[in-house]
Computed example of a mutant assay.
Amino acid sequence: MIRFKSMFHNAMHSKLFWPSAGIALILLFNAFFTPGFFNIRLQDGHLFGSLIDILNRGTPILIIALGMTLVIAKEGIDISVGSVLAIAASLAAFLLQKHVPFVLALLAGLGIGALCGYWNGLLVAKLKIQPMIATLILLTVGRGIAQLISGGKIITIADPAYRFVGGGYLLGLPFSVLLAVIVFVILHVITRKTAFGLFLEAVGSNRVSSEFAGIHSTRIMMSVYVICGFCAALAGIIVSSNITGADSNNAGLWFELDAILAVVIGGTSMRGGRFYLGGTVLGALFIQTLTTTIYTLGVPSESVMVVKAIVIIVVSLVQSDVLRDKLSRQFGKKIRKKVLVNEAAA
């Protein structure tokens, strides 16, 4: 009994427990109320089904959230990722329309994303502007830049190689899902197998102390914003490829909010320091699973944000350390009471 209590206490305080539990509850709900939700079929060598859709549709948010995790880990934030997404997609689509080779258009799209990240990092790390204000500049101006590139129109994409990035399949799975796996693995290696992750957590916990310890905090801060910008650009390539068009007005709209939510639900604190890439993956999957479930149930589009907000508020509350401690103490009292009753009966 004591061992079970210890396991329960550890689970309650695990950063991965609550997002995992949230996903499990949504899937359990679908098992009872959504017929065929778990059906997966193979057609023309491709896997199809609601679960595959969750992975496919959630990929852009997941990739952005992984980059956002590093920014939040250093006690920053980037609310411009939606606009960066639109800029990268518009530039790549514009170049393809001008018959620029696929590889060059792709590199240009990814490069402009990294450049936008460098700009944000410059404002935050060098000029000491508050992250919210610094990235608000690009949030506002970036959407206008994307519209200038596209001429305010939706640019259609006919290049088959480009369309494969977000709409193609490899080994039966959407190619975009494999890209998200690659991004996760690369960031995991960089942050957990090199000193970069340790330096990042040190800067996020206390920048002044980390500088006294010899860590170049400015470089770390610049680096995470460049990575975040690159991730936003990659997500833009995937989104525009998936719909075979670059929509500078609506592409990436509100993506920054879902990305930040995914990071927070995954257990990374907005105060910086420790971060959890695995938790971010679960947070992004939770948001997309919830979104897919809502649409599957036929909830009106105008009510989707309200339903998502309610569920996310509940998940955020149960992640509270104060609430978890109270639940843990209450559970401990019940366990002790049962033990005393059993001892008295014996």
Rank of each mutant, 00 (worst) to 15 (best):
V341L: 13
F48A: 03
R329I: 09
A345R: 14
R207F: 00
S269Y: 01
G298F: 03
S328D: 12
K128Q: 15
F8N: 05
A108S: 14
A31G: 02
Q330H: 09
H99L: 12
K98E: 08
V239E: 12
I52R: 07
G82P: 08
A89Q: 02
K5M: 13
R41N: 08
A235R: 01
S328K: 05
G298H: 05
G229K: 02
R324A: 12
E201S: 09
S14W: 03
N39S: 09
V103T: 13
G168V: 00
P19K: 14
A125P: 06
R57G: 02
I23G: 01
S205K: 14
G168L: 02
K337R: 15
M221K: 12
L115T: 10
M12A: 08
K98A: 11
F196E: 03
I155H: 00
G113E: 01
R219M: 12
L107C: 09
A345W: 10
Y276C: 04
A88L: 12
I112S: 07
K334A: 13
V339S: 09
G214R: 01
V208L: 12
L282M: 13
G272A: 07
K74A: 10
T280G: 06
D247M: 05
A146R: 11
W119E: 04
K338E: 04
K337M: 11
A180N: 07
L317S: 11
F8D: 01
C116E: 06
A11V: 05
V304Y: 00
K153P: 11
I79P: 01
G252W: 03
G236N: 03
G49Y: 04
I238R: 01
G229F: 05
A73I: 00
G197R: 07
F17E: 10
H216K: 15
H216A: 13
G166M: 03
C231L: 03
Y295G: 05
K74C: 15
S80R: 08
V307T: 02
L257G: 02
C228K: 00
H46M: 15
S210V: 07
K153V: 12
A125S: 14
M1E: 09
G273Y: 02
H216I: 07
L187F: 15
V314C: 04
A31F: 08
L327W: 10
K15V: 06
K128F: 07
A31V: 10
D247I: 03
W18M: 15
A125F: 15
G36P: 13
V103S: 13
Q330E: 15
R192I: 01
V203S: 12
F8E: 04
L47K: 13
V100G: 00
A105T: 14
R324C: 02
A158M: 04
L282W: 03
A232N: 07
K337V: 09
L138N: 11
K15C: 04
V226E: 12
I190D: 00
A88P: 01
G142D: 10
G332W: 00
S248V: 11
I215A: 08
H13I: 02
S210E: 04
F331H: 15
D159F: 02
K15T: 03
K326M: 08
Q97G: 15
S269C: 06
L70C: 03
R329F: 10
S210P: 05
T218N: 11
A346K: 12
F94Q: 08
P35Y: 06
L55W: 00
K153I: 08
G273P: 00
G283D: 08
F37S: 01
A11G: 03
D247K: 10
L25N: 05
L139V: 07
D53R: 05
I294M: 05
K308V: 06
T135A: 11
A259R: 13
